[in-house]
Computed example of a mutant assay.
Amino acid sequence: MTIIAIVSQKGGAGKTTLAVHLAAAAERRGEVALIIDADPQATASQWAAWREDQPPEVIDSAPPRIAAKIRQAEEAGATFIVIDTPPHADAAASKAMEAADLVLIPCRPSAFDLAAVKTTAKLVKLLAKRAWVVFMAGAPQAERLHADAGKLVETYGIAACPHRIADRAVFRHASALGRTVFEIEPDGKAAREAERLYMWACEQVGLTTCDYVEEVTR
């Protein structure tokens, strides 16, 4: 079973967008995916309610119960779990990271968001976890901006993921409908970005598939 924790100390970083699309991509690849919503705002849970029981499943959890919820999910057959955590909550972040095989830190390429990565980076180091920053909601063609942001987060001891999720209206449109970009625009740029990120994450945890090279080079 694969467990990915989505952690950021900054609100509005794109945690839930990242969580639901990783889980949805896993379902598309034949995994039994589950999102553990540890955020009191329950955004992922609301998204699931709008979906009317379509997978991936979302369950809520208080931070102290995350490990128990993971055990129950594994017994029920889950093979891919994404933990969506709240901002400004070290306890929840710690519990999620402790359980995770991989930590992803969503971050907009802006000064305030980049500064917030420092706190999460300290926690990553303390728990000795493998982690990457995933840039979210930046301009699609802003290569220089993302390169500079990547260099900055490296000074915190965290590398930037080579794939990012750009600011595309289809992500907002899909979320409002309780859907994903795979369902709204399956052949669109947003779907390709989310799929590439998922395949890259699989590689990091040893779930490389024969499709990975083909997918990331399209």
Rank of each mutant, 00 (worst) to 15 (best):
E203F: 09
V103Q: 03
L126R: 14
F112Q: 12
A166S: 15
S45P: 00
K95A: 15
A62S: 13
Q141K: 14
T180D: 03
W50Y: 13
A33C: 02
R144E: 15
I35H: 00
I83E: 04
H163A: 04
V124Q: 13
A25M: 10
A166C: 10
S94F: 13
T79Q: 02
V170R: 03
R65V: 10
A92G: 11
E203A: 15
V134T: 02
C107N: 12
E203H: 13
A26W: 01
P106H: 02
V153M: 08
A169S: 09
I35D: 00
E154G: 15
R179G: 02
G138C: 10
V7G: 02
R196N: 13
F112P: 07
A92S: 15
A44W: 06
R65S: 12
D84M: 08
A24C: 05
D53E: 15
E31T: 06
E214A: 13
A23R: 06
H21W: 08
E215G: 00
G138I: 07
A42M: 12
R218K: 15
S94K: 15
F135V: 05
E183P: 04
E214Y: 08
S8I: 00
V134C: 02
W47Y: 05
K118C: 02
S8V: 00
Q72T: 12
L102R: 03
G138S: 14
A93I: 05
C161K: 06
A201K: 02
A147C: 04
E154H: 12
E52Y: 09
L145P: 05
M1C: 07
P140V: 12
E183K: 06
T120H: 05
K189N: 09
E195I: 07
L127F: 08
V58H: 08
A89R: 11
V205Q: 11
M199S: 09
